[in-house]
Design a protein around this nucleic acid. Structure first.
Length: 272
DNA sequence: CGTCCACGTCTAC
DNA sequence: TAGACCTGGACGG
């Protein structure tokens, strides 16, 4: 699941299940890493602690609060990462970081493929841009201030994957964003597209926000926010993985889904 | 059984 | 700009 909307929902999920009102604020008691995982052990707590979370683009920070001190753990979710609360002892297969709680439940970071990473004591990465949904002005300014840089020489469909400027946009969001702009050639130079069609930047806020609302919005129930996610997102995901759409392998070997309207343009530029 | 494919980075020729 | 990093689901023989 994990692009901007899913990271945002994951932060909500962690916060919901870590609310002080659900029990004593010092709800958590231990953090254990699965030895198979290459990331560092998290030996930062002595006694009881509480937790909160925040996302920015495709990063998530879990804050550990213990006796007035806060320590961040910065996560990326890779291709398959998510968090899940279960009864202790019934954690999902591939739970790699477990946050044990006094009430007999555990919050686990689960990730089949182990592309997800965490690092203790880190704030947001400096090489990733502002979040298009929570830092809208900074997101836009970061683009307008750097529009003359070489990075913007790339085609717009590649540029949207550049996390230095489009933090949180991934393979399905770029497809959906460009699909909403039928007058924009996805194989055209990014600088030109952005200057002539600045509404593309608004879509970088709107489409992830819609996906976020569909995924459950701010999590307000115990329910798994990704339950029925596939059906819920059917109204939003109109292009990505749709057999009626065109696709090509992009320069970075990711499958790019696009409006068949542009297929001839694609062929002309990149051949068969 | 085997091959291909997956919502993402990383680092090493 | 290849590969490396990983598991598992879908699908073919």
């Amino acid at each position: 699941m994990p692009e901007l909307a899913e990271l945002k929902t994951t932060a909500d999920y962690i916060n919901y299940h870590s609310k002080p009102s659900k029990g004593p604020a010092t709800h958590y008691c231990n953090i254990i890493k699965n030895p198979v995982h290459k990331c560092m052990d998290v030996d930062i707590t002595k006694g009881l602690f509480s937790m909160s979370a925040e996302s920015r683009g495709k990063e998530l920070i879990v804050y550990i609060h213990e006796s007035g001190k806060t320590t961040p753990i910065r996560f990326t979710m890779g291709m398959s990462g998510y968090f899940k609360v279960t009864n202790t002892g019934h954690e999902p297969k591939h739970a790699h970081l477990k946050f044990y709680r006094k009430d007999g439940t555990t919050l686990s970071f689960v990730d089949v493929r182990r592309f997800g990473k965490w690092k203790v004591g880190e704030s947001w990465s400096s090489n990733r841009g502002p979040d298009p949904t929570t830092e809208v002005e900074k997101f836009k300014n970061n683009i307008w201030d750097n529009i003359d840089k070489r990075a913007f020489d790339k085609d717009i469909h590649l540029m949207l994957m550049n996390q230095q400027y489009f933090n949180g946009i991934g393979n399905y969001l770029r497809a959906e964003i460009l699909y909403r702009l039928p007058h924009v050639n996805p194989f055209m130079n990014a600088r030109e597209v952005i200057q002539n069609h600045p509404e593309i930047l608004d879509l970088c806020t709107e489409i992830p926000m819609k996906a976020y609302v569909l995924a459950g919005g701010s999590v307000t129930s115990k329910e798994d926010p990704f339950k029925n996610y596939k059906e819920k997102s059917e109204n939003l995901i109109k292009c990505y993985h749709n057999p009626r759409m065109s696709w090509c392998m992009d320069k970075n070997k990711r499958r790019f889904w696009f409006d068949p309207l542009w297929y001839d343009v694609y062929l002309e530029k990149y051949g068969a």
